[in-house]
Design a protein around this nucleic acid. Structure first.
Lengths: 227, 227
DNA sequence: TGATCGGCAAGAGCAGTGCTCTCGATGTGG
DNA sequence: CCACATCGAGAGCACTGCTCTTGCCGATCA
C-alpha cells in the first residue's frame, strides 16, 4: 500500500474515532455537543480536532449523515423477510421506532428541531430519503400486486405536486395514494417524536408499542393497502 | 395602591419585558438563547436578569408555557364560528400550522426536540394539553351528535389505556376512536414539524397548506367523522 | 428626622465554550 | 539528505451561564 494510502487510512480511522466518541457524548449529554470535551476524551488538544472537522457543525453533519444511514439500514434489514404489504409498512415503522428508542439523541438530531444556527448542507439529503424511499417502494409493490384501493380523488396544486413526485417512481401511483404515503411517513415520524419527546406522558404509558402499531395500521388503511 | 403592590407591578412589567426581548432573540437567532444578549438589549447587566429568572432554563420554561398558551388560544379562537366537526378539526390544524409558521422557533421550543439538559417542569403540562383537549372536545361533540362511525374494534393493553383516557372525558368514546383522535393530534404535530424542519423540501414545495389539509382530512376519516 | 433594612442593579470573576493562530515535531516524497 | 506537507499542542480571543460582592436608593420604623 502506498504511503499516501497509509496516511489516508490513519486519517479515516482518526475521523471514525472522533465520531464514535462524539456519538457517545451525544448519547450521554444531549445535543449540546462539546468539541472540547470530545477532544479531552480522546486525550488530545481541542485544536487538533479541527484538523479533521472544520467546525462543530461539520462534525454534526457527519453524525447526521451516519444517523440517517443507520436508521435507513435498520428499516431495510427489518423487513427483509417480511411478506404482506401492510406488514412490511408496519415493520418499517416498528424498526424505525426501535432504532429511535435505542438512539434518542441521534433521532432528535435528524428528525427533531434543527440545531441552532445549523443549516443542513446538500450532503444530507441523499441519506435522508432512505426511509421514505423504502416506504414508497412498498406502496409501489402493492400497486403492482393490485393490493391498493385508492381513496377519493384529489384536486388542487398539491395534487399536481404529488403527481409529479409519484411520476419519479412510477406513473401508476395515483396522487391521493402518493399523498397518503407521505402522510404515513409523517405519522411515523410524528409518532416516534411524540413518544420520545414526552408528548404521550400520562396518557399512553405502558403499551406504547401497541399504540404505535395502531397508528401505522391506520396509516396503511388511509393509503388503501388491502394486504 | 400599597408600596408592595407597586413593587410587584413593576416586577411583573420587568418580567414581561425580559420575556418579550427573549422571544425576539429566539425568533431572530434560534434556540440558543443568550441571557447576556437579552440583558444587553435591555441595557442592563446580565446579573440583573437573575433577579427575575433564576436561570436560563427558568426563562425558557416561562417562554414554553406562554407558547403553549398562545397556540392553544389561536386554535380555540380560529374555530369559534366554524360548524361541522370535520371542518372544526381541520380548522384547528390550520390554525396551529399558521401559528407555527409565524413563530417557528417557538414551535420548535414546544414540539421539537427538548432543549439539551432541560427537563420540563410540572408547570408546563397544564398549558401543553390545551390543543389536544380542544380536539378531544370536537370528537366528543361529534359522538354526541351521532356523527362518528367507529372503526374496527381494538384489543390489547394499549386499548385499555385508551379506554381509561377516554373515560376521563366521556365514557361514550370507544377506545379506537380515542386512539384515532390522539393519532390525529400526532399527525398534526408531525405535519407541522416536517414542514417546518425541512422534511418536505423537494417534494411538496408550493401548496403545502393544501397537503396539510389533505392530511387533516385523512385523520378525520380515520377517527370516523361523518360530518 | 435620622437610622435601618430590603430589594435592585452593576461589576468582577470563574469555568466553560467554539475557533484561530503560531510554533515545533514528525514522518513522506523527491 | 533535505524540503515539505501534515499533524498536535498551546496560547489567546470573544463569548457563554452563573455567582458573589459592593453600592445605591427608596421604604419603614424608632
Amino acid at each position: 500500500m502506498s504511503a499516501a494510502g497509509v496516511r489516508a487510512r490513519i486519517r479515516a480511522e482518526m475521523t471514525d474515532e472522533i465520531k464514535t466518541v462524539a456519538r457517545r457524548h451525544l448519547a450521554a449529554e444531549g445535543a449540546n455537543l462539546s468539541l472540547r470535551a470530545v477532544a479531552r476524551d480522546l486525550g488530545m488538544a481541542s485544536s487538533a480536532v479541527y484538523r479533521y472537522f472544520a467546525s462543530r457543525d461539520e462534525l454534526l453533519t457527519a453524525l447526521i449523515i451516519d444517523a440517517y444511514d443507520a436508521v435507513g439500514a435498520a428499516a431495510e434489514q427489518a423487513i427483509k423477510n417480511v411478506n404482506g404489504h401492510t406488514e412490511r409498512l408496519v415493520g418499517v415503522g416498528l424498526a424505525v421506532r426501535e432504532w429511535a428508542m435505542a438512539e434518542p439523541h441521534q433521532w432528535a438530531l435528524i428528525y427533531g428541531s434543527p440545531v441552532p444556527g445549523y443549516q443542513a448542507p446538500q450532503d444530507t439529503i441523499g441519506p435522508a430519503t432512505r426511509v421514505i424511499l423504502l416506504i414508497v417502494s412498498i406502496v409501489r409493490d402493492a400497486i403492482r400486486d393490485g393490493a391498493v384501493t385508492a381513496g377519493p380523488p384529489i384536486t388542487g396544486r398539491y395534487a399536481e405536486e404529488l403527481a409529479a413526485v409519484a411520476a419519479q417512481f412510477d406513473e401508476q401511483i395515483p396522487p391521493q395514494v402518493a399523498g397518503a404515503t407521505i402522510a404515513a411517513f409523517v405519522q411515523l415520524c410524528g409518532a416516534v417524536s411524540s413518544e420520545l419527546f414526552g408528548q404521550l406522558d400520562n396518557s399512553i404509558d405502558e403499551d406504547r408499542r401497541g399504540f404505535f402499531e395502531f397508528q401505522m395500521r391506520g396509516a396503511a388503511r388511509l393509503i388503501g393497502l388491502t394486504s
